[in-house]
């Protein structure tokens, strides 16, 4: 589902490449953690998958798309297949929970009757069916992240990318968010989650892909956060 082949990425402002000859693949329906300290290249990797950046060398594939070779016009096709969740939620403060989730469908031109049907369904999936008309600032951090996950998932993406989704949440809430991501994963969605939350990685016992200074240093199928480092 996700495949990187000898991918390097250098930024003009830095002498060391942010990613250095990384080859990795994540299969359909898999759940993988992407770990490593700050500056190890996690965010760059996610940005490459979304075509926010283009690899300097090597090829990036998401589903059947060669991401680096997509024309500007076809980038939306990629992003409609990839959902995104961030540490800072990125909800629209002037829209209700329902409107926030519906927005993701409106902007890709989904018909209104579809939106009216699927938004409540996905809100139920993330456990927010009672808070549909709340504004984001009326919700707790964990609830806001649930809205963000609902928004990322509402168009049934093939891949869900999560960039430190628990970075702003305490441990119990983080655990709930992890359960939710697992639930999303069980629907067949590939989940790739960048994090440096030891507890979560250790407790989940899922595949762990570790980057260090832009290089792939570990890829374990049922890993923990850090033994050697």
């Amino acid at each position: 589902m996700i495949r990187l082949e000898h991918v390097s990425k250098s930024y003009r402002t830095s002498t060391r490449p942010a990613l250095d000859d990384v080859t990795v693949a994540v299969g359909k329906g898999e759940f993988a953690f992407l770990i490593g300290p700050s500056g190890s290249g996690k965010s760059t990797l996610l940005r490459l998958l979304l075509r926010e950046e283009v690899a300097s060398t090597g090829d990036v594939y998401v589903a059947d798309l060669n991401v680096g070779k997509l024309s500007q016009r076809r980038i939306p096709q990629l992003r409609q297949r990839v959902g995104c969740v961030f540490q800072d939620f990125r909800l629209l403060g002037n829209k209700t929970v329902t409107e926030n989730v519906a927005f993701a469908l409106e902007v890709i031109g989904k018909p209104r009757h579809t939106i009216r049907k699927v938004v409540p369904e996905v809100l139920e999936l993330v456990g927010l069916e009672g808070k549909a008309d709340r504004m984001p600032h009326e919700l707790s951090g964990g609830e806001q992240q649930r809205v963000a996950i609902a928004r990322a998932f509402v168009n049934r993406p093939l891949v869900l990318l999560a960039d430190e989704p628990t970075g702003n949440l305490d441990r119990d809430i983080s655990h709930e968010i992890m359960l939710l991501l697992e639930r999303v994963n069980r629907t067949g969605t590939t989940v790739l989650m960048a994090t440096h939350d030891h507890t979560i990685v250790d407790s989940m016992r899922r595949r762990v892909v570790e980057l260090h200074l832009g290089q792939l240093v570990r890829d374990e199928s049922r890993g923990v956060y850090g033994v050697s480092r």
């Binding site: 979304l50 992003r79 409609q80 990839v82 990125r90 629209l92 403060g93 993701a104 902007v107």
Partner: peptide, 17 residues
């Protein structure tokens, strides 16, 4: 910019944005 950011990430076409 927040709306536009969400639009870009959810795959709204250039025209829509």
């Amino acid at each position: 910019r927040a709306e536009v950011g969400v639009m870009r990430l959810t795959g709204a076409s250039r025209w829509y944005t």
